[in-house]
Nucleic acid binder design. Structure first.
Lengths: 379, 379
DNA sequence: AATCAGATTTAGATCGATCTAAGCTACGCA
DNA sequence: TGCGTAGCTTAGATCGATCTAAATCTGATT
């Protein structure tokens, strides 16, 4: 899928570092002649206002030592000539770009969309721009995006890793000296600031609720095996089962892509088993919504014929029919905290790594139904 | 809501251009002493490999005139010293940042999320990075984001305007010389490349379907009045009514925020009228989903007691209960085309403005029900 | 040996800002 | 009158790359 074609432009300069130096097509960058560039610069302002570049710079940065009259004169020139600040040039000198890389695995998942909004908001208020990257859960793209952020260079990176299976990526992220914060998922072996939720507790809560309703055959649906949050959730799932002296049946743990489609297929697979489960905790709400769809397509009714609990509490969870029971995770809070942590990390690059873990909350709606043991069950 | 606090940092330099030069707090930018900056530069590589900066630059850019042995030597040095390309520095010289600003009104709307993914993908393959900005339908934020993109400076901007009511914004966007493409919505008075869908045809199709089912009191729910796509859709709505000799009843046209909540409230308002409508076309699917929620909360059943058609065909539309009838718009196609147009515009800044309009498609599911005239109706 | 073309390499200017350290005023005071 | 000082301004170096125009090096040709 990616890269579709050898991308052009300098962005891949760092590629020369890896792979054998294959004889790529000659790449004359930016052959298009630089446009006449009518950009108004500090120089122009200085000339117009009859002062030096340095003075104009002081005015722009609002340094208060400039005389009031001079200041007015300069501001007036800026207004008249239509001056536009050039961040790139300033960044080169100050060694700060005020850009933050944000790498998520799936923008179309409302969980991430809400995190993005929160992060953008917080960082924007602090004067930073967000460079958004979407990995589509792909290690290759994740790798490329991180390289890009380094080249930019971004002042910091907020990252939700796609998988912890790539040693190359783990090494790269550990070596890169950019301040960074992980969110929603960790990367084992990388000591780093992290904002997430108590996945174990959340999953345990959910499964205990299902067991409390009388279910004995409970599945865990969806998610990629190499993702930290899934591992933790499965621990919680197993813990709840263990506490109730129920063994973990591996055939009830079905991985999948962490989206609707993944959930749909995983549920189909579960229902095809000789002794299918009667309930399931899903890796996240997208998976759960896919699972609901699968149930509907086989004529079963979620809540009545099968109990489903999701994870995240996206807006859709309360609106779909049957409404989805789920573990609420407050993505906005996660985003806000991650941004906050990164800003602090940038300010103090050498403080020790911190972790912020939010407690999730069980929200019971319709999809997990009521007491199961009273029903037709007991086969 | 915004800005919560006076944002710091150079991002607001251009602010000095407007407002009266109020005595802001002294702002010494980036007081933190520049970090020791152990960045490996071209210079370092050149010294290590025993060549000049220029030669290293040639190697990096893969210009083929460099001798094979020299090339190898340089690549080896780069590898050993851990060189990371510095886009910012290069951009300053080449006058191209390979960054594209992308301004949308609501990331959490899956319609936009899918557009974003498509755009990112296409631009990424062309060697560009995406700077994402979310306006939350706010003119102020939209204004700030555009300024930011100009300051960056971005090589181009993809923009879905929040509203066409701000003259200041219209002027600013018209004056800014950055290559730009509008998508999903236009801005009247700004001659510019544009990618969108045939809103008039889509809305007309939807309303004609509702009329065909026997409805006579059809509403138009949601959306902000100053948005081009809504205006076009209302034209289509009116056209369909007119064709069937039904007058437009202004009390049946209820604007709202273009999201779930907006749809919820707008529908509540409609149902409270003395003679409520029996069907509605919604501004978009998010609004429609909110409307469904409102119906459900009042005990009415969409499809049976009220017919709803949405707009966009987001994933959720086919999954909610009742499944949402809607006008499919293929956001992925829109994103791809917008990116394509922008790339061409960057290559040829002076070609005349082009418009790409996709034809939408009516998708009938459950929420609009079946023939209405056969029912209890006919009051 | 001199000349020349073609192949490589490079010095130095440049992009547009910031920063340092020094310079210039004007004023107060001895 | 001279001098320190506070207040304001500025020349020139700098960030890390690219680009231009010229220099250097080959080897072949005359």
């Amino acid at each position: 899928m990616f890269p579709r074609s050898q991308p052009a432009g300098p962005s891949l300069a760092s590629n020369h570092l890896k792979g054998p130096s294959t004889e790529l097509e000659p790449r004359f960058p930016d052959r298009s002649p630089a446009p006449p560039s009518e950009r108004v610069t500090l120089m122009d302002i200085a000339a117009d206002a009859g002062v030096s570049r340095a003075t104009v710079s002081l005015v722009i940065r609002n340094v208060p030592i400039v005389a009031g009259t001079t200041r007015e004169r300069v501001l007036d020139s800026m207004r008249r000539l239509g001056y536009v600040y050039h961040r790139g040039a300033a960044s080169l000198r100050t060694q700060r770009t005020h850009a933050i890389g944000l790498i998520v695995t799936d923008i179309t998942n409302p969980f991430f969309a809400e995190i993005i909004v929160a992060i953008e908001d917080r960082l924007g208020n602090a004067g930073y721009v967000t460079l958004l990257g979407n990995t589509s859960e792909t290690v290759a793209k994740q790798e490329r995006l991180l390289a890009l952020m380094q080249e930019y260079p971004a002042d910091g990176v907020l990252l939700c890793p796609a998988t912890d299976k790539s040693d190359q990526f783990t090494r790269r992220i550990r070596d890169c000296r950019i301040p960074k914060v992980f969110f929603a998922r960790t990367l084992p072996g990388v000591e780093c600031d992290y904002v997430g939720i108590d996945n174990l507790a959340g999953a345990q809560m959910a499964v205990e609720h299902l067991l409390g309703l009388g279910h004995r055959r409970v599945a865990f649906i969806g998610g990629a095996t190499e993702v930290s949050s899934r591992k933790e959730r499965i621990k919680g799932y197993a813990a709840a089962l263990g506490k109730n002296r129920i063994g973990v049946d591996d055939s009830y743990i079905v991985p999948s892509a962490p989206d609707r489609q993944g959930g749909y297929h995983a549920m189909n697979q579960l229902l095809a088993q000789p002794q299918p489960p009667t309930a399931a905790l899903c890796f996240n709400d997208m998976v759960a919504l896919g699972a609901l769809q699968s149930l509907a397509s086989t004529g079963k009714r979620a809540g009545d014929d099968f109990a489903i609990v999701g994870f995240d509490d996206v807006a859709e969870a309360s609106l779909c029919r049957p409404a989805l029971s789920t573990i609420a995770t407050r993505p906005g809070k996660i985003g806000e905290a991650a941004a906050e942590l990164l800003l602090e990390r940038i300010a103090k690059p050498d403080q020790i790594a911190r972790k912020v873990i939010f407690q999730p909350e069980l929200i019971v709606r319709e999809s997990c139904g009521h007491a199961w043991s009273n029903r037709k069950h007991h086969s």
